[in-house]
C-alpha cells in the first residue's frame, strides 16, 4: 500500500468520493466543510487553559480530577462534540508521580482539547514501547525523571480519553492565568514533556 505513489491514492480517494456523490451518500462541498470544521476545532490551547485553571484554582483542580467531563464544561469545553460523548479522565503530575497517555490499540486522543494528534502518538513505536519502558521512552523525549518518581501510563480507548495536568513550574507565582497557559505544551498535556 505504501508503495502507491501519493498521486495514485489521491486519485483513488477522489474516485471513491465521486462514486459516493453519484449514489447520494455525499453532498457537494460536504468534505471541504468537514475538513474546515475539524481544522478550526480543538487545539492544545484548550488543554493548556484547563491546566492553567487547575494550577490557580484548587477547587477547580479538585473537580477536574474527580469529574473531568463536568469540570471542563465550566470553561466551555465538551467531550460530546464528536461522533459520541467520550469519558474524560484528567490526571495530575506530582513530585511523586508522573503520568503519560497512550492508545496502544490505535490513536484515541482528546481531540477537542488537544487538536489533531501528532504522528508519533499514532506510531507503533510509541504505542508498543511506552507501556513496556515508559522511563526509557520519556528519556528519548528529553524528559529525565528521578528514579523515585513513579510513572503511570494511561491507555486510552474508544470510550475513555485522558489528559495530563503537568506540574506548575517553579518561579511562576507572579504569572497570570493566561501567561501560565502559554507555558503548557501539547507534549506536556500528553505527558511526554515536563510542562
Amino acid at each position: 500500500m505504501s508503495d502507491h505513489p501519493s498521486s495514485v491514492i489521491s486519485a483513488r480517494v477522489r474516485h471513491v468520493e465521486a462514486l459516493l456523490e453519484s449514489r447520494g451518500l455525499l453532498e457537494d462541498g460536504e468534505i471541504d466543510g468537514r475538513i474546515d470544521e475539524f481544522l478550526a476545532g480543538g487545539s492544545p490551547a484548550n488543554g493548556a487553559r484547563i491546566a492553567a485553571r487547575a494550577w490557580v484554582d484548587p477547587g477547580f483542580a479538585e473537580r477536574l480530577l474527580a469529574d473531568a467531563n463536568g469540570a471542563i464544561r465550566e470553561l466551555g469545553f465538551s467531550m460530546a462534540g464528536g461522533l459520541q460523548e467520550q469519558r474524560l479522565k484528567v490526571v495530575a503530575n506530582t513530585a511523586e508521580e508522573h503520568n503519560v497517555v497512550v492508545c496502544t490499540l490505535c490513536s484515541c486522543y482528546p481531540i477537542a482539547l488537544l487538536g489533531p494528534s501528532p504522528g508519533w502518538y499514532k506510531s507503533e513505536a510509541y504505542r508498543s514501547r511506552v507501556v513496556r519502558d515508559p522511563r526509557g521512552v520519556l528519556r528519548e523525549f528529553g524528559l529525565e525523571l528521578p528514579e523515585r518518581t513513579r510513572i503511570s501510563v494511561w491507555d486510552a480507548s474508544a470510550e475513555s480519553r485522558y489528559m495530563v495536568v503537568p506540574r506548575r513550574p517553579e518561579g511562576t507565582e507572579g504569572l497570570s492565568e493566561e501567561q501560565l497557559a502559554g507555558l503548557v505544551t501539547r507534549k506536556g498535556l500528553i505527558g511526554t514533556a515536563a510542562v
Binding site: 497512550v102 496502544t104 490499540l105 501528532p118 504522528g119 508519533w120 506510531s123 507503533e124 513505536a125 510509541y126 504505542r127 508498543s128 514501547r129 507501556v131 513496556r132 521512552v137 528519548e140 523525549f141 491507555d155
Partner: peptide, 13 residues
C-alpha cells in the same frame, strides 16, 4: 502492539 518488542525509536516531526 502494547508491549510488543522490535519497533524502532520514536520519531518526532
Amino acid at each position: 502492539v502494547g508491549g510488543m518488542a522490535g519497533f524502532p525509536a520514536i520519531v518526532e516531526e
